[in-house]
Design a protein around this nucleic acid. Structure first.
Ligand code: FES
Ligand code: FES
Lengths: 150, 150
DNA sequence: TCAATACCGGACCAAAATGGTACTGTTTTC
DNA sequence: GAAAACAGTACCATTTTGGTCCGGTATTGA
């Protein structure tokens, strides 16, 4: 299906939740509640995201997480890479010299090319843009519905 | 890693092999030999590709496979969809109504948007283009090496 | 006619990735 | 020093993936 893992999907949800409360330190429990996800799962996600430098963590009472950078400076590519490692469409094209067919195989160049293009697509989508489609208020007007069906 | 399955990668290799011999019916064994892949694997791939209408099959002695359309009319998106089903980045965005969080979740629109963009990238790469980087002759001159390292 | 070739449609299995959970530290606040 | 909250890691169940095999059928040509 050429899909991203479900955890990565959840990671974007979590990130938009955090981005919705800028300059606020949210605990894992708060985030899990708002994102409608299980707490242990959210905990794991935040650990990964923190390790990638996308969120800052604060320990102790009243600790929690906060965006490490403004939402405009975080792209979907950042999140995907944090969760799944470097973006590459084929096993062969990331691990150079892994595949013994590489000498004869001419498609690897093409795959590398499309991987680059897809990386560009992911880099073009920022967290701020994703947040724009998800209003904090439960309002959902016609413009957004039209955009969804486009 | 946001990757396509290895079988899909192999499918592109197989397709370029077939495309390298236009208007020739190649047996599974010939294709497997040329693609340096195991015969049962190639057999499975060709079954999938045939089912998707990308290759024509001929039974009996001297049977085999041939492209169903000219290489210019077959895109990478066709091959990926033949192997992995419809292109969609997240589970949620393909199976509408599957995820009970969908009402609250605002990121699905964004994901659908990037899925569309990535579909475009895949549709833009044709089998003919992929073949161009893989000469039939075993010659490998400097220009190709340079291109490979680009 | 009949045997050889070669695709068709499955079933089948082992190994790996995934999703999810739990538990034990460590740091900070009050 | 007790409670809150993150850090790290280990663990397991399930699913997906990659790969193989076999009996069936159609076509060719001697
Ligand atoms: S490089 Fe491994 S199959 Fe192409
Ligand atoms: S629709 Fe399922 S998590 Fe967004």
């Amino acid at each position: 299906m050429l899909r991203v893992s479900r955890l990565t999907d959840y990671a974007t949800v979590v990130m938009t939740c955090i981005a919705a409360h800028p300059s606020d330190v949210l605990s894992t429990a708060q985030i899990a509640d708002e994102a409608r996800l299980e707490l242990p799962t959210v905990s794991k996600l935040l650990k990964l995201l923190g390790h990638a430098g996308l969120v800052e963590s604060f320990r102790g009472v009243n600790g929690g997480y906060r965006l490490a950078r403004p939402a405009e400076a975080i792209s979907l590519a950042d999140i995907v890479e944090a969760m799944e490692g470097p973006i590459g469409m084929t096993e062969c094209s990331v691990a150079q010299g892994q595949c013994d067919r590489q000498a004869q195989c001419g498609v690897s160049d093409s795959w590398r090319s499309v991987s680059g293009a897809i990386g560009g697509v992911l880099r073009a989508m920022t967290l701020a843009q994703m947040l724009a489609g998800r209003p904090t208020a439960p309002a959902k007007d016609a413009t957004q519905v039209a955009q969804a069906n486009a």
